[in-house]
């Protein structure tokens, strides 16, 4: 069982032969690496990091993979309410925006938001920047990003994916267009 540390506890010093770098959950002062969280120390290569509690609430950061629910769509963008960040739960009041130019890698100019997302869809996306003061900027321009779960607009049943841009209602056979997420 790894040792538990508290914030402010020194983890190593430069007097040790190798110079250790500071990873997540640590901070440095005068060449000394200190813990910034309550958790376990781990060392991979020359990087020291402290892993905190699993259930601490995550905050979106650039290049993180998030899963959210579409709460609003406009002609230019879809607004998501974020649910998880890199597999960890996130507060639902964090919001992200998928702009129309960030939906696909190809044919960006012909993207129509209402053909890719509908309100209530569960979408996997990547955070590309902190955005503005209200929302993070997300992107689904990858094969593994897009809609994970959607319901039919007429019957309310869960749709099943049939291609990268189509989902089908299993009971009525009706096809709806989405930006479907591929396997991760």
């Amino acid at each position: 069982m790894a040792a538990l540390v508290i914030p402010g506890q020194p983890l190593s010093s430069q007097t040790t032969g190798a110079t250790l770098a500071a990873g997540p959950g640590t901070w440095t002062r005068g060449g000394q690496v200190y813990a910034a969280l309550v958790g376990e120390v781990s060392r991979e290569g020359g990087v020291l990091s402290v892993k905190g509690k699993e259930e601490t609430q995550a905050i979106p950061e650039p290049n993180a993979i998030v899963i959210g629910t579409v709460s609003r769509i406009t002609r230019q963008a879809a607004t998501l309410s974020l649910l998880t960040v890199d597999g960890r739960p996130c507060r639902p009041d964090f919001t992200g925006i998928i702009r129309s130019q960030d939906v696909r890698q190809t044919a960006k100019d012909s993207v129509k938001i209402w053909s890719c997302f509908r309100p209530g869809d569960v979408v996997r996306a990547k955070v590309i920047s902190l955005g503005d003061s209200r929302s993070y900027f997300l992107s689904t321009a990858a094969n593994s990003l897009g809609v994970l779960f959607a319901v039919s607009t007429s019957t309310g049943e869960a749709l099943e994916a049939v291609s990268w841009e189509e989902m089908r209602d299993p009971s009525t056979g009706e096809v709806e267009s989405r930006k479907v997420a591929g396997p991760e």
Partner: peptide
């Protein structure tokens, strides 16, 4: 604050 997982320099 430490229990909440807020990064901090020390207690």
């Amino acid at each position: 604050l430490a229990e909440a997982g807020i990064p901090m320099r020390g207690l």
